[in-house]
Design a protein around this nucleic acid. Structure first.
Lengths: 345, 345
DNA sequence: TCCAGCATTGCACCCGCGTGCAAATCTGTC
DNA sequence: GACAGATTTGCACGCGGGTGCAATGCTGGA
C-alpha cells in the first residue's frame, strides 16, 4: 500500500482514480464507470469502489473530465456593479439555481478597466465554460462573437446588441415606461420628468424613449435629465439640481430604483418636499429597498426568479446552429406602493 | 490543411494547440512554450505562433493546464445571502481583485438546503480550486476539513470555527461593540438595548457579548432581543415589538445595518419617533444604505476593500503545513453620522 | 450438457497540454 | 574555420479520466 515512488517526496494531495482502483482491487475503468452516470458496473463492484473512494477521500477531477467530454458544467456570469441590489439579486438567484442544477458559476466582474474585462472574458473561454450569461456591462462584441464561434451558449439579459447568435431575455421596458407616464398623469402631475443616468444601457434607453414617446402621444413634453452612473448618488444629484428649477417637477419616472431612492432623499432632505403630496415618484426594478417604508416606492418589478429559472432551463436547450431565436419577454409588473398619489387604477 | 478525419463530422469547436502548431509550421511544444511564462522560445517562432493563434482564435485550455500543474487558478468564494448589501460588496471587491490577479472566482451560494450546500462545496474540490474563501454561511466542518486535507488553502472571514488550519480574518467586533455602548451612554440614553437576529454567526455573537459585558462593567443592564434572520424585516419586527414595551428603548445597538434600517423604519413609521431625538441607533457594517440620508446611520465600517486586498495577498502566501497562523484583525472604524445625539467625542 | 445472449470487466487509446531530455541550431571566441 | 557553450527545438511521456472494443463471466433455455 505504501510504495515510496522514489526520492522525491510525493506531496500530491488529491487522490486519483488509480489509487481508488488499487484499494478496491478493480481496474481504473471500473472506478471511472462508477462515477459516470449510465455506465455499466455491477452493484458489487460499485459498492467496493464507493467504499474505497470514501475511505480515501476521492473526488472526481472535473478538470480532467471536462477535457474528455464536451461539457465542463461551468457557466460564467458576466456582470458589472455586483454590489448593486439588482445585480446582487440576479447573481444570488442564478448561483443558487445553477448549483441545484449541478452546474457551477464562474463570476466575471466587468466593473474594472476594459483591459481587465477582456482578460476576464477570455477566462470564460480558457476554462471552456459551457455558457456565458451576460447580465450587465458592455463586453466588446468581438469577444461575444468569439464565445459564439467557439460553440459557447451565450445568453444576454436586457441588452440588444446587434450580434446575432445569443439567446436574449428582456423585460417589457417600453410598455412599463408608457404605463409609468400614464400613472403620473392620472395622479395629476403637471411637470413630469424623466430621470436617468448617462449610461446607455439598452433597457435604460428603451425606458426613456418609450416614456418620452408616451408624453408626445399625450400631447405633452417631459423634462429629461441625465447624470453620471446609475447610482443613488446620481439620483440625489439630479434631485438637487432639478428640484431647484423654476418649473419644479412634481412627478418623475426614474429609470432605476436606485436613482429613485436618491431623488426622493434629495426631495425630502434638501427641499422638505413630501411624497407623494408634492412629488410623485416611480422607479424600476423593485429592489429590496423600494419596499422599505422610508421609500415605499411604486415601481416595476423585474421578475428575477422567473428570469433566473428561464436562464437555467435555456442551458438545457442548446441553440439551433444557424438560426436566431426570438427574444424572450418578461412582463414588468407594477408594484403599487405609496410614492404616487391615488390608488391602483 | 483540411483533412476530414473520417465519416463523423468533426464538430469540435475549440482550437487546439496542435492546429496552431500546424499552421505556424512548428511543433506543438513550441506553441505550448509560447503561452507558458518563462519557457524558452525564440522571438521568431513566438511571433509566428502568436499570429497563427490569433488567426485561428486559439485559447489555452486551462482545464488541461490545471491538470498538469498543481494550480488551477480557481478560487471559490463561499457565501450565503449574496443579495445582501454587505455580502454583495464583498463578492464585488473580491471578484474584481481576483481577476486583476489573473485568477478566476467560482461562487458557491450556501443559502439553499444543506444538501445542496454540501454538493456545491464538493464542487470546489472537484474543480481543484486552489483556495476556498468562506465569507458567510455555516459549511459543515467536515467539508472544510476535506478541503484542507486535499491541500486547499482555506480562508475564513469573521468566523471562528474550532477547526485548525484555515487562515482567519476578522474585524474587531468586541472593541466596536464596547464603543457602541459607551457612545449610547454618552448620548444620554437611559434604556439601552441590543438588537440581533437568531442566527448565531461568530461575529454577531461577539458583538452581542461584548455589548452586554460593557453594560455590566458600567453597572447597568441592557435589553436584549433576538428575532429571525439577519434582515431588514427582522429589524422592523423587533422595532415594532420592542418600542411598544413600557420601558421603551431610547438607544439601540443593532448588530447589523440591515437590522438597524428596519428598526429605524419601524420607529418612525409605526411610532412616529424622531431619530436621534427620541431614539439613538448604531449599526454595524456600513452598508451603502447606511449613508443614505433617509437613514444617516452611525455605524461601524467593515473595511471591505482592505479585507479583500488582504485575502488576495494571502493567496500568494500558502500556509505553512503544520502550524496555525494567528487571525488577522481589522479595526472596525466608527462612521459618525446623525442617528446618535451629540457629536463625535 | 451445451451454447446463445447479455451484463461486466479490463485494455488501450485519447482528450489538450506542460516539461525533461537529447538533438539540433546558433553564438562567440580563438 | 573550428569548437565549446548557450539557446532553441522536437520527441515522448504523463496529468486524470471517459469510452470503444474485445475478452470474460454469468444466465437461462433447449
Amino acid at each position: 500500500m505504501s510504495e515510496t515512488a522514489g526520492g522525491k517526496h510525493r506531496q500530491r494531495s488529491y487522490v486519483s482514480a488509480l489509487q481508488v482502483a488499487e484499494r478496491a482491487g478493480v481496474s481504473r475503468s471500473a472506478v471511472s464507470r462508477t462515477f459516470t452516470e449510465g455506465a455499466s458496473v455491477s452493484a458489487a463492484t460499485r459498492k467496493r469502489v464507493i467504499e474505497a473512494a470514501e475511505a480515501l477521500g476521492y473526488h472526481v477531477n472535473h478538470l480532467a473530465r471536462g477535457l474528455i467530454q464536451d461539457r465542463s458544467n461551468i457557466v460564467s456570469l458576466v456582470a458589472t456593479d455586483l454590489n448593486t441590489p439588482y445585480q446582487a439579486g440576479l447573481i444570488h438567484a442564478l448561483t443558487s439555481r445553477l448549483q441545484r442544477a449541478g452546474k457551477v458559476a464562474m463570476v466575471i466582474n466587468t466593473s474594472g478597466q476594459t483591459q481587465s474585462v477582456e482578460k476576464a472574458l477570455r477566462q470564460t473561454l480558457e476554462y471552456r465554460a459551457d455558457a456565458t450569461v451576460v447580465l450587465s456591462g458592455q463586453p466588446p462584441g468581438s469577444l461575444i462573437q468569439t464565445c459564439l464561434t467557439n460553440g459557447q451558449h451565450v445568453i444576454m439579459l436586457n441588452r440588444d446588441d446587434a450580434v446575432p447568435g445569443p439567446d436574449r431575455l428582456m423585460v417589457t421596458n417600453r410598455a412599463a415606461a408608457r404605463e409609468a407616464f400614464l400613472h403620473l398623469q392620472a395622479a395629476g402631475c403637471r411637470q413630469i420628468a424623466l430621470v436617468a443616468s448617462e449610461v446607455g444601457t439598452a433597457s435604460v434607453v428603451a425606458r426613456e424613449e418609450a416614456f418620452v414617446a408616451a408624453a408626445a402621444e399625450a400631447g405633452t413634453t417631459v423634462q429629461v435629465a441625465h447624470f453620471g452612473p446609475t447610482t443613488y448618488a446620481s439620483g440625489r444629484a439630479l434631485g438637487r439640481q432639478m428640484l431647484a428649477r423654476p418649473q419644479r417637477p412634481d412627478g418623475v419616472f426614474c429609470v432605476t430604483d436606485l436613482l429613485a431612492c436618491g431623488f426622493m432623499d434629495a426631495a425630502r432632505s434638501e427641499f422638505g418636499l413630501s411624497i407623494p403630496d408634492d412629488l410623485c415618484v416611480i422607479g424600476f426594478d423593485d429592489i429590496e429597498q423600494a419596499g422599505w417604508s422610508s421609500f415605499d416606492l411604486t415601481t416595476f418589478r423585474q421578475p428575477i426568479d422567473q428570469i433566473a429559472a428561464r436562464i437555467i432551463s435555456l442551458l438545457d436547450e442548446p441553440p439551433p446552429p444557424g438560426t436566431q431565436r426570438e427574444p424572450i419577454a418578461f412582463p414588468a409588473e407594477l408594484i403599487w406602493r405609496r410614492s404616487v398619489r391615488g390608488t391602483r387604477r
